[in-house]
Design a protein around this nucleic acid. Structure first.
Lengths: 257, 257
DNA sequence: GAGTGGTCTAGACCACCTT
DNA sequence: AGGTGGTCTAGACCACTCA
């Protein structure tokens, strides 16, 4: 039996200030998410069902959905449908725990899939980061990580083989930092993290099962050992609705806000 | 004299892998930004000029522009046009400097405009944060901040009047933390920062001169004094292309990435 | 007042996921 | 095979900005 538009009947919402129609539809969907009529992970009616039930053109529907996506309330699975976003994971760059630990702590189920491992020759940018000559060999690992089965990030890790020869022969689905520490005696002493909102490039979008341009958060992490050598250079692309940054600090330096 | 589409002639770009037309147009525009033909702050040709020169329907043009906006390469000024984004400001939540200091340090010109100041009664959420009874009076300040004349953030600051009576009578265009420290002897000892990508709500969008749904970064900062009382609760909404987070840390705790 | 982006319509075909 | 979202067209009118 086909599912009709009103199998997930949307509640109306008390009148709002007039505005564009797509925002009214956005409000209505957001309202239904808030009150739990559309629980996390559930699927929204199809765009064409909205067309019928809401009476707008499909473009208008898609504007409302794109707005909700930008807000992090819903996400899309390419050519499958729109789904309500699960809660985000909180990430604290000053705490020293990895993905697996974070996610487990927060009552969710993490998983890692290694997509590719290869050896490349350093281009100018990488040569500069690792302080090696351009063309030097570097290990590159590409992984995808999921929370409760939903892909939330793709990452590309670069490691200097001088510090970890034969690294690619290990099982890389766990903690890389652990492998570096226990198998190679390489210990991370300093960490640099850069974050910025961005949009998914085509490739990353494909492996995350979404569309190029989907909003995203780029996290670039550079790890140094006690001698200041770069141990690990990790570029992560997160679904923007899956992560939340939290930092807790005591004062040092001069207040001047 | 009217400006014709080819007053900013767009360079063609070496052939790319086939894909949607809007991505091809995106690549072309991004290329022209990279090579400096479209410098930071400059205005792009109008959508209708693109329609003529690129030969696509306007919807397709707008898709390319929205993609570039999501990537942070361009931004819009409502009903005025599309502009190339200036470089982002780097923000380090572990460093103890305010907006004015950051921006100046990075060779840019900051400014603050106080939009509104008022007294409200705490709702449930705020009462919980400040540990006061619901309905207790609270100071609320709304400000907009600009870099080189471009609005980049709106913020809403809440302060407990018990700690700073008469705060609203001061000039609030400078550093609030300074005022609290020097006029009221209130010193911030601990700081909590939460960040997450989001989309601008209607009001914030209007004051930033953009459209609801424009990508954005929410930064919520809670400041405590040495006794653990909440001194300042600051909700900031940043244009997502204006900010970049940078954290530099030494290891503490257990590595487990 | 001319031009801009913002919103909206009503179609169409396609690639891909799902069953 | 049927349904989904992804892409694209060719119009239209509006609110607003800017000179």
């Amino acid at each position: 039996m086909r599912q009709s538009a009103d199998m997930i009947p949307m509640e109306g919402k008390p009148g709002e200030a007039a505005g564009p129609q797509y925002l009214a539809l956005r409000d209505q969907i957001a309202f239904n998410i808030e009150i739990g009529k559309l629980p996390a992970g559930s699927r929204l009616p199809s765009e064409r069902q909205f067309q019928t039930s809401a009476g707008f053109a499909r473009g208008t529907i898609r504007q409302a959905l794109a707005q909700l996506e930008a807000e992090g309330l819903i996400y899309r699975r390419d050519r499958s449908g729109w789904y309500v976003s699960p809660p985000a994971i909180t990430y604290d760059p000053t705490r020293w725990a990895g993905f697996m630990a974070y996610v487990t702590e927060q009552g969710r189920t993490p998983a890692t899939i290694t997509l590719a491992k290869s050896s490349i020759n350093a281009n100018a940018a990488l040569a500069d980061i690792f302080r090696v000559a351009p063309g030097s060999p570097l290990h590159v690992i590409e992984r995808m990580r999921t929370i409760d089965g939903r892909p939330v990030l793709v990452e590309r890790i670069t490691v200097d083989p001088a510090l970890a020869p034969g690294l690619l022969d290990h099982d890389l689905d766990g903690s890389l930092t652990q492998i570096l520490k226990h198998k190679y005696g390489v210990v991370v002493a300093r960490n640099r993290v850069d974050m910025r909102p961005c949009a998914l490039a085509k490739e990353a979008a494909e492996t995350l099962g979404t569309k190029p341009g989907a909003p995203s958060l780029t996290v670039v992490r550079t790890s140094f050992d006690e001698k200041g050598r770069v141990v690990e250079y990790d570029q992560e692309y997160w679904r923007h609705d899956a992560i939340r940054i939290h930092v807790d600090l005591s004062v040092r330096g001069e207040p001047d806000a």
